[in-house]
């Protein structure tokens, strides 16, 4: 194979700038989607464990829909189909006036998708607790929302920091599908560099290294959070002290 290695291309303008810009979009999409996923996923996860059956069913329906439709298809639905389904005015706004449409569509799509996965983790965290914890909280006069806020969620979230790390990393990787609706994130930019320079090995290696860097940073951060919030005598694994 004849291949002219040229790692220097990565540090030349405009390619260097393209890579940084791609990295920036990947990080922004991931953080935006993660924010939605955490908030919505927590709400849906709570719904999945709520005593009221109708609420539980709604939560389950959400999870099944968003978890089982391929992300790429969901992205197309958000981008191409949704503007046609909503009332005319809103559809026109989505198609014509929404600033950064690729970006916001990717954030919403990945956020709603990841929320279904976060919801399952939140549910498993809550269900890992003994039923007695909820009963004790309720018996003391706390309302159900208070029992979730003060007892079930603080313990449940500590148990699911490791799987939540995986979900976060999964969004980082999945964000690359946004290139299909034209968002020039990291994968798209590395492909563009390849197109312009024919230095595919270098540009894809750079993208790989940058994804890896994000993953490493996220893992370290989550590890730190896990250690800071650890409960004395509770070494993960859902073993509640004394029970």
């Amino acid at each position: 194979m004849q291949y002219n290695w040229n790692w220097g291309v990565l540090f030349q303008e405009p390619y260097y700038g393209w890579l940084l810009s791609g990295l920036r979009w990947t990080v922004l999409v991931t953080l935006g989607a993660w924010t939605i996923a955490l908030m919505l996923g927590t709400a849906v996860g709570i719904a999945r464990t709520w005593p009221n059956r109708a609420v539980r069913t709604l939560g389950a329906a959400y999870v099944e829909i968003f978890r089982n439709v391929p992300v790429l298809l969901q992205l197309f639905l958000w981008f191409y189909v949704l503007p046609e389904l909503v009332p005319d005015g809103l559809g026109r706004w989505l198609k014509r006036d929404l600033p950064l449409p690729e970006f916001w569509t990717a954030v919403l799509c990945l956020g709603f998708y990841a929320a279904s996965r976060v919801a399952e983790q939140v549910r498993s965290g809550i269900e890992a607790l003994s039923r007695g914890q909820l009963q004790a909280a309720l018996a003391s006069g706390l309302t159900l929302p208070q029992a979730y806020r003060l007892v079930l969620l603080p313990i449940g979230f500590r148990l699911i920091v490791p799987p939540l790390t995986s979900e976060f990393l999964s969004i980082v990787r999945t964000s690359s599908v946004a290139l299909t609706i034209g968002l020039l994130e990291l994968t798209a930019q590395s492909r563009q560099i390849e197109n312009y320079t024919f230095q595919g090995f270098e540009s894809f290696a750079a993208a790989t290294a940058l994804y890896f860097g994000i993953a490493l940073a996220a893992t370290l951060l989550m590890h730190l959070i896990e250690r800071r919030t650890a409960i004395a005598g509770m070494v993960g694994k859902g073993s509640l002290g004394g029970v």
Binding site: S130, G132, S140, P154, R158, I231, V243
Partner: peptide
């Protein structure tokens, strides 16, 4: 007030 068989103190 209620006291349970397995104590059910809040571990966190």
């Amino acid at each position: 007030g209620m006291v349970f068989q397995h104590f059910e103190l809040y571990p966190h």
